[in-house]
Design a protein around this nucleic acid. Structure first.
Lengths: 149, 149
DNA sequence: CCTAACCTCTTCCTTAACGAAGAGAAATCT
DNA sequence: AGATTTCTCTTCGTTAAGGAAGAGGTTAGG
């Protein structure tokens, strides 16, 4: 069993496994790395314009258009006109049968089973951690992004 | 605060944040997606031959050679001759100052601080979860990989 | 021994993705 | 109203990455 003493190693292994799994899933549905990245950006940031998506993915306008083309053609995303500004377009996620979400679902079920093996109090600790850690990672990611600019 | 009721959403957000952060870090040090993937494979599986690495990354021999070339030139990896079989080469990870690990370190420190905010019993729950979840993800990744073959 | 199998690397070709620059359409400002 | 700014999209050229096929060196089996 793992203890806080070897926590660093345990955590690193966990992170690697998560990243590996995400990447493998993307590959299994024939998706490139930038596409997966963009999907995560949309999942976290909600619907946004191509310009905003390009900014957050670090792409210029040309590749951004084609990134959205790919995602739209694959059915992950939809282009919706902005009612307030007719120059703009809003890119929004779309539930896609047979898509990445379904490919990744088996793993999430396993995780769900693991989590349910804990007591309610323990589960509360886990979910509290998830929420806090997500914020920390998003902060750190923003810093990474700023450093590049 | 998060509760098990909205646990699915919380967890998805957490996963997206982790993946986003890894990808952003890789980009910040000028590393492609496959390179990051290979680094994770090596971190999880330990040193291995180019053939094995190629198999696990889903690459043929040509791109595998150049993948290792890139990683070696960037200082993340080292080629060592296999003492038992002189046809073989062993690729092993190398600690790299200024590399991906250091770029990602600030986030890990934040995570460390979060974890230390919990009681010892709660920390034990977290580390237990990390270990179990890593196994689950690795299993699921293997299944993904097999499905493609 | 000497042939067959194995492992890595090299070479050539194709494909995919990105950046830069500019066109077209719509909103904002004077 | 007219000019400027702001979006998105298109096009062109470049670069990076992957697949296929074969060469060179090494081990294993007849």
């Amino acid at each position: 069993m793992s203890t806080p003493e070897n926590g660093g190693a345990v955590y690193r292994r966990y992170l690697s496994a998560v990243m590996l799994h995400g990447h493998a899933g993307a590959k299994a549905v024939g998706m490139g790395a930038t596409d997966l990245y963009a999907l995560n950006v949309l999942g976290l940031g909600g619907s946004m314009t191509p310009g905003e998506l390009g900014r957050r993915t670090g792409l210029t306008t040309g590749p951004t258009t084609r990134l959205i083309d790919r995602l739209e053609q694959a059915g992950y995303v939809r282009r919706v006109p902005d009612p307030d500004d007719r120059r703009k377009i809003i890119v929004e996620l779309v539930a896609r049968p047979g898509g990445l979400d379904e490919v990744l679902a088996p793993a999430r079920q396993k995780i769900g089973a693991i989590v349910q093996g804990y007591s309610p109090e323990q589960q509360a600790v886990l979910f509290d951690y998830f929420a806090r850690a997500a914020d920390a990672y998003l902060d750190a990611t923003t810093e990474l992004h700023d450093k590049r600019a």
